[in-house]
């Protein structure tokens, strides 16, 4: 996975709360046996609405998405993270995320940034006017309009994103401990 340090560009001001993974990618697109190519099916139901932000040319290729509470709830389908990655999304900013989605996101090089509701509201507003910057090293989201919001992130996940590490290789370096566990417990 490629390392991710700083994300800069337009942010799609979606803003909706309880965005479930069925909405991000509908079940009819889960029959693929590949990871790539799901971006064009992302948010199909939302895109069917007239004047939706996803089809606004101002946000074409935007690397950031801003949403409301509980983003990525529902189904564990990693296809949701693949679809976002395939759209070119590298960071999602929301007041909260579902646990499963947050895990899927970082494993696919997408930073799930949690900010308080008032900060998210201000960024939603700013996103219509200017690009945003998400700095994973400094842990700050900023805008040229002077916004500056500090966020926290799980240190393990942050390191994985910054270094673009292969989690399985990391775990396999603990082979001895895994074998010892199996012997100790008779598993």
């Amino acid at each position: 996975m490629k390392a991710l340090k700083r994300i800069h560009g337009r942010a799609i001001p979606f803003g909706r709360r309880n965005v479930d993974t069925d909405l991000i990618i509908a079940a009819s697109h889960l029959k693929t046996v590949r990871r790539a190519g799901l971006g064009r099916h992302a948010f199909a139901a939302a895109r069917a609405e007239r004047g939706n932000v996803f089809d606004d040319p101002a946000f074409a290729g935007a690397p950031i998405l801003i949403a409301g509470e509980n983003f990525g709830c529902g189904s564990s389908r990693e296809h949701a993270a693949w679809a976002l990655a395939d759209m070119g999304i590298e960071a999602v900013i929301a007041p909260s995320f579902s646990d499963i989605f947050a895990g899927n996101a970082f494993r696919n090089g997408i930073a799930a940034i949690v900010l308080p509701r008032h900060a998210v509201d201000r960024l939603l507003d700013a996103a219509w006017r200017c690009p945003l910057t998400v700095d994973l090293e400094e842990m700050i989201v900023s805008s040229p309009l002077g916004h500056r919001f500090v966020f926290a992130m799980d240190p393990f996940r942050r390191r994985c994103l910054l270094e673009g590490c292969d989690e399985i290789a990391l775990t396999l370096s603990h082979e001895e401990a895994i074998r010892a566990y199996e012997e100790r417990t008779g598993t």
């Binding site: 389908r77 899927n104 494993r107 989690e167 399985i168 775990t171």
Partner: peptide, 13 residues
């Protein structure tokens, strides 16, 4: 529940 990357991780480790 886990995502597919975790499925791969569990299968491997």
């Amino acid at each position: 529940g886990i995502g597919t990357s975790e499925v791969e991780h569990v299968l491997a480790t």
